[in-house]
Amino acid sequence: MPQGDPRSTSPLVRVVVAVLLIAPFAAYLAVPTYAKVKPRLAGFPFFYWWQLLWVIITAVFIGIAYALTRPRGDDRRTPPDAPSSEEGE
């Protein structure tokens, strides 16, 4: 089912976008890897500056994902198959 945005792009780009979006989860959920005090940065224990740094990295990654998937060229698509308006139950 997940065919992705019809306007979007090559499989390679899709893999890159997936990696960009999954990376923050991997970084943050590996809690033991950053649960330490040293090295400190400007007085901040590693635990804190590492996680604050990853907020910025997450934002940059999402920004890149946006740039890679934004519709280019003609913004207006011809609307394809009209949706059915049947209601169930």
């Binding site: 913004d75 609307p79 949706p83 059915s84 049947e86 169930g88």
Partner: peptide
């Protein structure tokens, strides 16, 4: 029997400016 889906695949990508 399952319910009927009133949405279509392309509905999830529609953007402002399209008539629908």
């Amino acid at each position: 029997p399952d319910g009927v889906d009133e949405t279509g695949h392309s509905d999830y990508f529609a953007d402002a400016g399209e008539p629908r």
